[in-house]
Structures are given as C-alpha cells and as structure tokens.
Amino acid sequence: MNIFRLTGDLSHLAAIIILLLKIWKTRSCAGISGKSQILFALVFTSRYLDLLTSFISLYNTTMKVIYIGCAYATVYLIYAKFKATYDGNHDTFRVEFLVVPVGGLAFLVNHDFSPLEILWTFSIYLESVAILPQLFMISKTGEAETITTHYLFFLGLYRALYLINWIWRFYFEGFFDMIAIVAGVVQTILYCDFFYLYVTKGEGRSQLSIPT
C-alpha cells in the first residue's frame, strides 16, 4: 500500500458516500444516471467475488463490503425509494453498447482464462466506461448540480491516483498490470473534459453547464 493508492481509495469512498448522502438528504436523484450506478454495482459484484474465496486484509475486505453495499443502496434509492425523482427521459444511454463489447473483450484479452479472472477483467473494462451514461446525461441536460460535480471529481480523481500508484509500484516493486493500467488510462481520459470544466467553471457557479 502506498499513499497514492490509499488516497485513491479514500477519494473513491468519498465519491460513493457523497452520492449516497446527496440522494438520501435531498430525497431526490435528479440529474443522476441510474444506468451508471447499475454498471458500478455490476463492476463491484464481478470484481469482488473473491470476497468469498480469499482474505487479503481487513482493509481490503472492509472496503469491498462498503463499496458493494453503497452501490446497491444507491441503485435501490434511485429505482425504488426515490423512483419518482428519477429522470429517465435523460438517462437514455444504451448500456448494452457498453456491456456486450466489454464482455467480449474480457474473453479475448485477459491474463488467465479462469472464471474469476474473466470476471475481474470484465469489471476492469466495464469500470473504465461505466461513467459514460452519467456524462451523457449531463451533456443532455446541459447542467449538473454542484454536489454531482464533486461526486464526479472524486470519482475521476481516484483512478488518476491509481495511475500514479501503478507508476510507483512498477518503479519500486516491478509490479504492473497492463490490463488495469490501459483501462485506467481510458477511464481517466474520459473525465478530462469534465475535469477541465470542473476547474475552470466550478467556482462561483451554482450549476456546471456542459456545452451539449
């Protein structure tokens, strides 16, 4: 564990908690893409099945349980509890165009053709594009609540910190995982446009307006 990975995990945790609290406190999921949240729940489910097979550390297990729990709680709030506030008309990204190619790629490009490894690879590829429905929804509505932009900022920051963590681990431990690194680079690049807007227009505006 290095400081980049730890702050990355904490940034990820912050994003997940920010979103969950935002929906719970405002009792509304307006502007939130339920599809992205379903994809994240799928990412955590397919990646953390090793919870059942191997114990790495208390930290590892605790964080995985929290991530999975929050992901499903968020999906529940969006599609059940605060269903009336779900903006389905703007959450129209065709997720099958993400899940199917990612599923196929996981079978073609992986480290080991075992079920757990295929599922882990699937989750890595899926996570890199899981935010697209959310970014697409914001581009359609042309705006995002400030709290949602903070959620996206921490979510994007987490994988950027992981990229630094992988540079650190390669340099000091000779460890590197090409699949995770390539997917992580793609994932972070998808946020660049948003990062630019967050930094340049974030201050002093109640709504972040993304040019459609």
Binding site: R5, D50, I56, N60, M63, Y67, H111, D112, E117
Partner: peptide, 10 residues
C-alpha cells in the same frame, strides 16, 4: 501479474 493472482488492489 504473471499468474500470481494477488488481487490486493480494490
């Protein structure tokens, strides 16, 4: 990773 499936990262 070279086969050592130590998925120690989240």
């Amino acid at each position: 990773r070279t086969g050592d499936c130590t998925k120690d990262e989240l």
